[in-house]
Amino acid sequence: MITELTDALMHLQCELVAERNLVNPNEISWLQYDILTALQSHALLPSELSVYLGLSRSKLSKSLVSLRKSNYIKQSPGKSDHRELVTSLTDEGKDLLTKIDVGHEHLSQTAQKVFSATEQRQFIKLSQKLVPILREERVKNEQ
């Protein structure tokens, strides 16, 4: 039996996926977008990306190859172990994320119109509570 919470979460997920499709100009897959977003704050090793995104190394590797061919990422030998490839965004990758982020601004503006300031703070707090748990469960299930 679907509860109101389940129903609300399913509808929110569907709408967020639809919004995501609008802002991604079909240049990259969702997985590739997630990889680029993970690299936005700092460079990572593929093993770190794999754990963070809850992906197998082989699935991640295929996406990294494609992103490298599109010149959205670069990989260079690690400082301590030259066999490890440190993965980071190129300027083209940063530009693509900026373009996509402009599209995300519409979602933020809509939420600001719909939610009061108090509701916005509540939504942020609840999201920050739920998202890490969902990520942690996904990572556990991938292992």
Rank of each mutant, 00 (worst) to 15 (best):
T90G: 02
H42Q: 13
N26A: 15
H106L: 07
Q112R: 13
P25F: 14
A43H: 05
L67E: 04
R83C: 00
I35S: 01
D91W: 06
E92L: 14
L44F: 09
L96M: 13
S56W: 02
E105S: 14
Y52N: 08
W30L: 15
K69D: 11
E92S: 15
G93V: 02
L60V: 06
L44G: 06
S61R: 03
Q75R: 10
Q32D: 06
I35D: 02
A111V: 13
S66C: 13
N26K: 15
D34W: 00
Y52M: 09
F115Y: 06
Y72N: 01
Y52A: 10
L89K: 03
T118R: 08
L49C: 01
S116T: 15
T98Q: 12
T110I: 15
H104N: 11
R20L: 14
D101W: 08
S41Q: 13
L96P: 02
L64F: 01
E48P: 04
G54L: 05
D91L: 12
G54W: 03
S76Q: 11
Q32Y: 04
D34E: 06
Q112E: 13
F115S: 00
F115D: 00
I100D: 01
K79E: 07
E119G: 07
S88G: 05
T118F: 04
S47R: 11
E84D: 12
E84L: 11
V86Y: 02
S108W: 00
T118W: 01
L67T: 01
F115C: 03
K74P: 00
S116M: 08
L49W: 03
E27V: 14
S50H: 04
E119N: 11
S70W: 00
L107I: 09
K113E: 14
S70E: 10
K79A: 08
R20I: 09
L60F: 04
G54V: 01
L44A: 10
N26V: 10
K74Y: 09
